[in-house]
Structure formats: structure tokens, C-alpha cells
Nucleic acid binder design. Sequence first.
DNA 1: CGGATGCTTGATGTATCTCAAGACGTGTGG
DNA 2: CCACACGTCTTGAGATACATCAAGCATCCG
Lengths: 251, 251
Amino acid sequence: MDAMTTIGAKENVTAIEPLLRLLSRYMPLDEADRAALSGLMVGTLLQREARTDIAREGDKPTVIRLLVSGWACRYKDLPDGRRQIVGFFLPGDFCDLNVYILSELDHSIGALTDVRYFEIQPHQFQEVIDARPHLTRALLWHELVTSGIQREWLLSIGQRSPLERLAHLFVELYYRLRAVDLVDDLAFDFPITQHHLAEANGMSLVHLNRTLQELRRAGLIELADRQLRIVDLDELKRVAMFKRSYLHFNR
Amino acid sequence: MDAMTTIGAKENVTAIEPLLRLLSRYMPLDEADRAALSGLMVGTLLQREARTDIAREGDKPTVIRLLVSGWACRYKDLPDGRRQIVGFFLPGDFCDLNVYILSELDHSIGALTDVRYFEIQPHQFQEVIDARPHLTRALLWHELVTSGIQREWLLSIGQRSPLERLAHLFVELYYRLRAVDLVDDLAFDFPITQHHLAEANGMSLVHLNRTLQELRRAGLIELADRQLRIVDLDELKRVAMFKRSYLHFNR
DNA sequence: CGGATGCTTGATGTATCTCAAGACGTGTGG
DNA sequence: CCACACGTCTTGAGATACATCAAGCATCCG
């Protein structure tokens, strides 16, 4: 199942970059912080193919995963097959910093594209946390933001119209990807399918497709060849009723 | 705004009961744990009337609140007035254990009924955490459960039909209230209005009313005079596709 | 008594789902 | 090299679940 690659120290440094960029949006990191985090990424980088599960609901959580490249998602499903994506993991995100506390995973984690990630042992993590309270704070901050994003999604699915909801998701992804330097001007790689977008937004594939076209027709976005370009960010934000504050970026 | 009451040590002990019951569902608490928590609840108990805000989005968080009696909610709203309740607070719940880390609240907290709650200073909390790692673990556990409940709500609003969704919410509230000993057999006080239920479930008031009647007609629940009685728990759980594990109660 | 709050019901329109099919690109095996 | 399967996106047609608008009734309270 898992493909493993042992990587050298140099590649290691590259792999940790997204996380460092992300955390430094919240608060400055000094060299010791960076070194401590890099120290966690020892050994092996794991890989997973698109459309495979990284973890399943019910699994006993034992490791902490840090996504290095590709997109993954947290999802939950119902016995009859209905599925809801409850969050996206982008490079630099932890797929469950704290869940090893619990005895059983209450959701699944799936690779949406080919992904690469580190697995970190909780005890290694604990050492870093004990040694560097400042880092602990940054990590906790990130967890709180993740939780805030979930609340915003509830607002979106519960109250925003499909058009507003989709617009909102695009703006959110724009800011999150920009935080890890994966945005080029207003364009970024967008490797997931309309099917995934529908599952994340709680609507049918057909309707998602039509809503997407509405955003295109309105001149707000362009989406083709797995590339999303935001054409009119201000207007997209207005349509989405987007308020940046829930992401809690300082810079 | 706030009504304040200074309370004696005895009343204090009663007020902390829901929290102790809740945490002991996760792991056993010894006498020292209980004493440490009780020690936090010094001084004043605050009160708020139904339909008032306890905190507003954008506020700077400075205190940690522990709900002692009544029901409150976390909600978010849109500029045009649409409102989504993203979580209920029941007695024994903290309204934001960690949020004082962030500079700004990304959601509001409203009292649904008359409520009583303690305000705790972060530094007091920190002392307890530093002194009693076991308690820290229990509190973190509870935070993770809260986060898991949010995910379950996303699944509900995104994929469950209104009937399934409402059934699911009732079962969830049953278990949560039972955990703090507020359930009598299969019945409990249900002090919120259909309007609140609609806002929590992301549907219109009219449709919520009809869905409620459907549950009644199916012989699954009785709801009258602010009392909810679950008539057929097994069937209600089946309809809701309820899986208890996301609540992570051990007992 | 008058007003506020909460619950209920009816009528109507429409947003969204479901079912179905076609087009296009890509990879694969014969 | 062609035939075919598969994944993805797109479009059409029809059915319906749900929202909206509107009104009535009960209870409580000042």
C-alpha cells in the first residue's frame, strides 16, 4: 500500500517548507523553531496514489501525518454511500495533530491526488512541544484555525446559496494556498474534480457543474486544465460574503 | 448587561458538577483533579437572559466561560441576516477553551435560554494545566469531541435529509445531556424553540415544523411543553444513521 | 385589552435533484 | 493501430423537495 522513500537531508528541508511558511503566517519563527520542526521530518516520506484512503474511520490513530505535496481530504460517509468532504488538506497541513489522544478515528482521510507525507510519532512531537512553547502555540493556533474553517463551512452549507458557497470555497483555497506560496498571481493548480467539489459543498454533481458555469459566465473565475484563475477577486469575495478574519493570518 | 452573583462554596460545588460528570465520561478523575477544577470556579457566577449575546464575532477573547445552567449556542451570521447555529453549549461545556490564543473571535456566542456561567482567567487555567497533566488530557479530549461534533454536523447538513438530520440532532442531544445527568429515562428538558432548531439544521422554520411532525407521527418522539421524550430510541437512531463513536464517551 | 412570542397550516413557485445521454481525452489490451 | 473502457465534463428533461408568503391560533404578560 504505502510507497516509502528514504530521503536525504536536503530534500527534507524542501519538504518542510510549506509548514514553515504556514506557521510563520501566524507568528514569527526563529531559527531554533525551524530547526526543531525540521528535526521531526526524519527518515521516510510516504506516498499515496490519488483516490486511495490514508486512514479510515474506526482506525486507531497512532501517528501524526504532515502533508508535503498534493491534496487530501477529511471525509465522513453514511452507510448508503453518501459522502461529505468536511475539509481539505493542502501542503503544510497536519492531518490530525491531536487525534492520537482518542482511541478511534471518527472520520476518514483520503488522498484526492497523488500525495506525499511524513509520518511522525507522537512521542517525537511531545519532545518538541515540551522544549519549545512558542512552537506549541503556533501549532495550537493552526488547530484553532482548522476548527474555524469547519465552522465557516457549516455556515456555507447551511446558509449560503450554492453560488455563494462555491465562490467562498474558491476564495478560501486561494488564501490558504497563497499562505504556502502555491499561488502565482491569482492562479493556482487545482487538481481536484468537480465530483470532489460537489461532495465538499453538499450538492449534486450536475448542479455543481451549472453553478461553476455561472461563476465563469459572471467573469469571476476561469477553471480549465486543472488550473484555477481568479479573474475578479474583489467581486468574488463580495458574492461569497467572504471575511478573511476566520483564517487568522497575521501576514 | 451582566448580572453577577457572588456564591458560597457550597453552591460552587453544585455548579461544577456538570463539568465533572462530563469529563469523567472520558476518563476517571481522582479527588485532586476534582479539587483543582473546583478551585477554578471561585468568586462569581454570571447570568444572562435568553436571547442575548454573550460574545460577538470580532470581540477580543480574554476569558474562558464555563456554562453551568441553561443552553447557549455558537453561531455565525451573514451580512443580510441569515444565521447558522454551528453548535450547542449544554451545562458543563466550555465556550472556547483555547480561543484566547487568537486575537479575535470568528463567531458569536448567544444565550438561548437564561444561562449561568463562570468566567475563568486564562492564567488561572494555565496553572491547573501545568499542575495536572491528566486534567489537561481530559480537557483536550473534550475539545476534540467538540470538533468531531462539528464534523458530524457537516455530514448532517450536507448529506442527511431534513428528517434524518433532525433525528440525528435529537439523538446527539440525548447522549450529551445524559452524560451530564440531565436525562430522565428517555425524556429531557428541551428549552429551545423551533426557530433555533431550524437555524441549527439549515432549513426554514416552516419545513422544520413539518419535519418535526413527521417524527411525531412516526412515533419516534414526543415534544411538548419544552420537554422532549424519545419514544423509540433504536428506531430514531436507525433513521438518523447514528453512530455513537464520534462522541468518544467511554462510559 | 393589546402586543409579543411561538406553533401550525395552506397555497404557490422554484431551486435543486435525479435520470439519462453524449462528447472528449487517455490509457490499455488485442 | 484500432477498439474499448473509463474518468471527467456537459447538457436536457422531468419530478419534487423545499423555501417563501401569508394567515390563524394559543399562550403569556404588562
